[in-house]
Amino acid sequence: MGKPFVIQNNLRRLRFDSNEMTQQDLAQQAGVTRQTIGAIEKGDYSPSLELAFRIARVFNVRLEEVFFIEDSET
C-alpha cells in the first residue's frame, strides 16, 4: 500500500472566484444537495469520481484544480 493521503479541495475558493456562487447554486448545477456540497467543502465526504467531474465541469476547470491529495501526517 502506498503512502497514506487525504483528499483536499478548492471548492470554497472556486465558488468565491465564480462570482461568490452559493453552495445551493453549486449543488443544483452538480445535481446534489446543499448539505453534500457543505460536507465535501469541510472534508467530511469524498465524492465519487462522477460527482467530482460534474463539480469540475460546473467551474469549467480540470479535476486537479478542484480536488488534490496531501500526504497524511499519521
Binding site: 445535481g31 446534489v32 444537495t33 446543499r34 448539505q35 453534500t36 460536507a39 465526504y45 465524492p47
Partner: peptide, 9 residues
C-alpha cells in the same frame, strides 16, 4: 425539503 436523494444520502 431537498427534492433529490444524492449519492451521499
Amino acid at each position: 425539503e431537498p427534492d433529490i436523494t444524492d449519492e451521499r444520502d
